[in-house]
């Protein structure tokens, strides 16, 4: 009796979960994929071979790789400092890291324009060196760095907190330098956190839209990423183009996240 009741609950729960995920995630993806192939596979291949599409993917990847590389090194550093050191203003720093979660990406774009735009307060300095940040790739990189900042740090902080410090102490007792201790002892222990942080950061960077539209201006072939191309194609009623790029971009990001997830689970078992 008790068992049957439990089974009923289980059934309801499972149905609910599948409905929830199905409606929210599977249905839109199914719609996207069917829209992508409505003119056949040839149309999709034609879209993906266009120079403008390839340059858009290229720019997305370049920004994503650069941003991820920087956050991998500096994000690890920040997480490390936040866990292992005690200093005045630590609480503030900790809270600041979450700011990108709270600020709308469009606002991030405008904030950068306030700094780097023609009337921005950094404009005189930029002019001296002839640097272009707003409406160019550097501005888009900065915008993406801003919105992806928390991912690596938030992923690593609990991992570092859970480290067994006796191993590090043993290493230094045995005469290892700080650097050696980090590479030989600490790094292997937090490696999985870093990999997971990398995939999240990279996936989020590829998906960024609002901030880079505002700060990049959406110039076709120059500051147009894959997401901005999707936006423009929808405006131009080129639905197959928009859907095809969306599916490729989404698939790539999902494979990244799922790959990391899978590895993490394997490593745990």
């Amino acid at each position: 009796m008790n068992n049957r009741k439990l089974d009923g609950v289980r059934l309801v729960l499972l149905t609910l979960v599948w409905l929830y995920v199905g409606v929210l995630i599977l249905a839109p993806i199914a719609g996207l994929v069917s829209g992508m192939f409505r003119d056949g596979v040839g149309a999709v291949l034609e879209v993906l071979s266009r120079p403008e599409v390839q340059s858009a993917f290229g720019l997305s990847l370049k920004i994503g790789l650069f941003v991820t590389a920087v956050h991998t090194v500096l994000g690890t550093l920040v997480a490390w400092v936040l866990v292992r050191h005690r200093f005045p203003g630590q609480g503030w720093l900790n809270a600041l890291i979450d700011a990108p979660f709270a600020v709308s990406p469009v606002v991030v774009g405008y904030m950068l324009l306030l700094m780097f735009g023609r009337n921005g307060f950094l404009a005189p300095i930029l002019e001296i060196f002839g640097w272009r940040v707003a409406f160019a790739v550097p501005g888009m990189v900065l915008a993406t760095m801003f919105v992806t900042l928390p991912f690596m740090i938030r992923e690593l902080i609990p991992v570092i907190q859970n480290l067994d410090r006796t191993q590090e102490q043993a290493a230094s007792t045995l005469g290892a330098t700080g650097w050696q201790t980090f590479w030989r002892v600490t790094f292997p222990a937090i490696r999985w956190g870093i990999i997971y942080g990398i995939t999240l950061t990279f996936a989020r960077a590829l998906g960024e839209f609002g901030a880079i539209l505002v700060v990049g201006g959406g110039v076709q072939g120059r500051t147009e990423t894959a997401t901005l191309f999707i936006y423009r194609s929808l405006d131009e009623r080129q639905y197959v183009a928009a859907y095809s790029v969306a599916v490729v971009l989404g698939l790539f990001s999902m494979l990244l996240v799922m790959g990391a997830d899978l590895l993490k689970r394997k490593q745990r078992s």
């Binding site: 403008e52 340059s55 490696r191 999985w192 990279f202 790539f252 490593q267």
Partner: peptide, 27 residues
């Protein structure tokens, strides 16, 4: 585990390169 991590990084780098190669150089 190091091997797995290494393989994952290589895969990530390869996938990126493939996409960047179809994409990167046009502009």
């Amino acid at each position: 585990n190091t091997h797995r991590a290494g393989r994952f990084f290589i895969l990530l780098a390869l996938a990126s390169l493939v996409l960047a190669a179809c994409g990167g150089q046009a502009p």
